[in-house]
Design a protein around this nucleic acid. Structure first.
Length: 892
DNA sequence: CACTCCCGCCAATTA
DNA sequence: TAATTGGCGGGAGTG
């Protein structure tokens, strides 16, 4: 807290605060004291206060509340860090730009600033995603409310949702216990299972449910009506545990939240429209859907969605239907929880080896709850009973579990990697689609998008689960080597890591090299893989210019990357919320916290770091900035990181990287890789987050040069000359991997023409802007068609429009063979319009700032500070990145 | 105008 | 009874 506060503080202080400070301090932020107004540079007087502002000041002076709000605003900025904040030491970075931006914002607190999503981010920023087992953080509602400058009511909104996912649990009045995401995957799994039971039926029976959902929400209702309500309820009802009191609670936001999440997990497409969700959630009301009630439900869903978005579990999208476009949310969190892991199973309380597992969750729950309370209401999982038992049993503290969890995470990650690999292989073998399908198969026969299914790595958690089946939609095996976050890969290589052992479950076959990367959807990542080593079938080293560029980019990036976000400076904003927002609104990222290691800012602004190779189209264009390998795995990674790192070299790397941050720009990867030993050189991919404009596409650029290294399946991607692959975000989400195929001449026109300059790496997205969806397949380009009206027939696999058009699907299977990757653009490209690099926003325009950021704002001054907390740094970075993006995007 | 969703009243629960 | 929670919906901000 303190941390950001400072930064915040500083800035604001000058103006409003001063008068206020006194008062503020009292309650809110004591922390401030330490603050030194570091960068205030700008902060200056902010802005001319508008009359309103003045008024506010006065008011605030008079009323504490106002002050609080003010604070919020202020804090607001800092918040971005939030995620990472837990480790907060280094925070400074923000400062720099803030001034400009902040001021604006400050001045007129737009509604957005007050949004629940933002608030949630701030909230999340305060706590580590993967808290150490030992530490248990308790959250005081009052405290948080005051710190964040909001009314307590709002905190409840956030906490209730978090509670539904077991990120927190209520310990006592006004007291919540922060668990972090350790249990998230388990929780999700439980929800998924519950969801299948409840909703699944529908689905299975009706297959389409989802289709319907997105397609026709209403119709669906009909079909499902009965089933829906009831089953859902069950789940929702905690009763199992102790239903006792629920009246009110039943409706509670938390239950709604769980149901909402269940819908995503059950959904094939992973896309749920608001109205459908509302209808489903109204359950009982099915019949009489009051309009008002519906409206209310929708409002609540927005609340929930905002929180989930902040967690990086979903993102806003629009589904275009016949009727028009509807707001919808897409699940970008982990998708498959292969149940397998023991833990996941969860049900068996006793069995769990790890506390972390469900049981663990339960335990925590209990523990936290131990005292008493509400868990009854909370636990809505069906499994509750077991849980209870478990809980009771488990009185053990959460802590221990946590640690284990972390380990688990690591292992999980590893597993994932393994899985991924396998998948890849499989995919390669067949169509990825198929595999996916299979995986998913459970539910949908319909071809959903192949990719959609994939587990997304939003968080490490996701990764965590061993996906037995997990398939990566990835194209082919191409790259077998995704480098996972280093840690992982490293681990893989090093047996020593415990994780590895654990991982086993998923697949024994972990290959060291094989790392996978999970991308959080939002940002750009560089992935390092040992391409060379492996041959990525797909990844072609882009030999050509592209390659070079990419290489350059790599070089540039890596270094930065190496720094990892730790270097915050690099900060490429990970598509922080804002960015996306423009497009989809935001993912906010939860991920942010994650270690996205390689996040690249989309914005072209300049890549601060990269610059050395300014030319490199990629870098320049994309801005890749920082990034680091780790990234791949998101949050988990972090956790894993820490621990694993130790085991591995990661730490060292990080540190080094950190150290280097500033210094070494290029080569980060190498360093890392070396350290890892596992891979000398990792091919890197850059994943570019969809910018606002491009929301739908994701690009992956191969960074590596190594040309020959990759042997694609010969043909696989031949067609694409472009080094980059665009993937529809949707697809991407599902896929962890994307490979850039070849190098080919840069300029070679892309079929679609979509990438004019593909070669150059600079995408001019503009071309893309055209709504036409572009598919890039090695072999063929498929024109996606939108099939708006899916055949209702359940049998037919009509895909929801959203997903790839059926064609794709098919094509995938068909085509895919050839091309490793199927790129479908999901639905229509809604947001492509802007090229990522696109128009800089005014803010973005200013290079100076960015650089500053990158350089590290706060840090500029002292890198050292940063270094202190490595872990933190990462986070910080991310935050920074976000920030950047935000700034850049915001204008939009 | 539609979509979002902030705000905060006020009831249900708890302490 | 007071405080804490949190449902709920008016209505404002955005696009």
């Amino acid at each position: 807290e303190n941390i950001f506060d400072r930064s915040r503080m500083a800035p604001k202080t000058p103006i409003k605060n001063e008068p206020i400070d006194l008062s503020k301090q009292k309650g809110c932020t004591p922390e401030r004291s330490p603050i030194t107004p570091v960068k205030i540079t700008d902060r200056p007087q902010p802005d001319p206060w508008t009359p309103t502002a003045n008024l506010k000041m006065l008011v605030s002076a008079a009323s504490p509340d106002m002050r609080d709000r003010e604070k919020k605003k202020e804090l607001f900025r800092p918040i971005e860090n939030s995620e990472q904040s837990d480790t907060p030491d280094s925070l400074q970075y923000d400062i720099v730009d803030d001034s400009t931006v902040d001021e604006f914002e400050k001045q007129r607190p737009s509604r957005k600033q007050k949004s629940l999503g933002l608030l949630c981010q701030k909230f999340l920023a305060r706590y580590p995603n993967y808290p150490l087992s030992t530490e248990k953080t308790t959250i005081s509602l009052d405290e948080v409310a005051s710190i964040l400058g909001v009314e307590r009511r709002r905190i409840y909104d956030i906490v209730n949702v978090l509670e539904s996912l077991q990120l927190v649990s209520r310990v006592a009045k006004n007291q919540y216990c922060w668990h972090g995401r350790h249990n998230l995957s388990q929780t999700l799994k439980m929800l998924q299972e519950a969801g299948e039971l409840q909703y699944g039926e529908l689905m299975t029976s009706q297959h389409k449910e989802q289709d319907l959902e997105y397609k026709f929400g209403e119709q669906k209702k009909e079909t499902i009506p009965d089933s829906q309500g009831r089953p859902l309820l069950e789940f929702s009802e905690p009763d199992c545990v102790s239903a006792s009191a629920n009246s009110r609670k039943d409706k509670s936001l938390r239950i709604m939240s769980q149901k909402f999440v269940m819908l995503f997990l059950v959904s094939k497409t992973k896309i749920v429209t608001l109205d459908i969700a509302a209808k489903i959630l109204i359950e009982e009301t099915q019949d009489t859907v009051d309009h008002s009630k519906f409206k209310t439900k929708v409002r609540r869903l927005y609340d929930i969605a905002n929180v989930l978005t902040s967690l990086g579990l979903i993102k806003k999208v629009h589904v275009t239907e016949e009727r028009g476009r509807k707001p919808a949310f897409k699940w970008i969190g982990p998708v498959e929880f292969p149940g397998k892991t023991d833990e996941l199973r969860g049900h068996s309380p006793a069995s769990d080896p790890l506390p972390g597992t469900q049981t663990g969750a339960c335990a925590q729950y209990q523990t936290s709850a131990a005292g008493k309370q509400r868990f009854t209401r909370h636990a809505s999982f069906n499994s509750a009973q077991p849980c209870e038992a478990a809980r009771r049993k488990v009185s053990s503290e959460p802590n221990s579990p946590r640690q284990e969890r972390q380990d688990e995470n690591c292992s999980k990650m590893i597993n994932l990697a393994a899985v991924c690999r396998q998948k890849i292989k499989e995919d390669t073998g067949n169509k990825a689609c198929d595999t996916e399908m299979v995986l998913n198969s459970s539910k949908n026969s319909s071809t959903t998008l192949p990719f959609s299914l994939l587990p997304v790595p939003g968080d490490s958690d996701f990764c965590v689960n061993p996906l037995p089946q997990a398939v990566f939609p990835v194209v082919q095996a191409d790259v077998p080597s995704f480098s996972l976050p280093i840690g992982i890969s490293g681990q893989a290589s090093h047996p020593s890591t415990p994780a590895a052992s654990k991982t086993e479950n998923g697949k024994p076959t972990l290959v060291p090299n094989q790392p996978f990367l999970c991308f959080p959807s939002s940002s750009l990542f560089m992935l390092c893989g040992g391409l060379q080593e492996n041959n990525l079938s797909e990844t072609l080293p882009a030999s050509g210019d592209v390659g070079n560029r990419s290489a350059e980019a790599q070089a540039a990036v890596p270094p930065t990357g190496c720094q990892k976000r730790s270097s915050h400076k690099c900060s490429s904003p990970p598509a922080p919320v804002d960015d996306e927002e423009p497009a989809a609104k935001k993912q906010t990222l939860e991920q942010s916290d994650l270690p996205l290691s390689l996040v690249v800012p989309k914005k072209p602004s300049e890549s601060p770091k990269a610059e050395p190779s300014p030319g490199s189209g990629c870098s320049s264009g994309l801005h890749l900035e920082s990034n680091h390998l780790d990234l791949a795995i998101p949050a988990a990674a972090e956790a894993a990181y820490k621990e694993s790192t130790k085991a591995l070299d990661c730490q060292e790397q990080e540190k080094q990287s950190q150290n280097k941050d500033t210094d070494e720009p290029p080569l980060g990867n190498e360093h890392i890789s070396k350290e890892n030993a596992s891979q000398p050189f990792q091919p890197q991919y850059l994943y570019v987050q969809p910018t606002a404009g491009l929301s739908s596409f994701n690009f992956l650029f191969s960074a590596n040069q190594a040309p020959g290294a990759i042997s694609l399946a010969a043909n696989q991607l031949p067609s694409l000359s472009v080094p980059c692959v665009m993937v529809p975000s949707a697809a991407l989400a599902s896929f962890p991997l994307v490979c850039s195929p070849s190098f080919t001449s840069p300029l070679s026109p892309v079929p679609d023409g979509s990438f004019p300059a593909a070669a150059s790496t600079n995408f001019s997205m503009s071309s893309l802007a055209s709504t036409t969806p572009v598919f890039i397949s090695t072999t063929a380009v498929v024109a996606p068609k939108v099939s708006p009206a899916p055949s209702v027939d359940p049998q037919q696999p009509a895909h929801p429009a959203l997903h790839l058009s059926p064609v794709l699907t098919r094509s995938c299977s068909a085509v895919k063979l050839d091309s490793p990757v199927c790129m479908g653009h999901p639905v229509t490209l809604l947001k492509l319009q802007q090229p990522s690099s696109a128009p800089l926003t005014p803010k973005s325009i200013r290079p100076a700032h960015h650089e500053a950021f990158f350089k590290t704002p706060g840090s500029l001054g002292d890198p050292v500070a940063w270094k202190k907390n490595e872990g933190n740094q990462t986070r910080n970075v991310s935050s920074v990145q976000r920030r950047l993006e935000i700034s850049s995007t915001s204008p939009d």
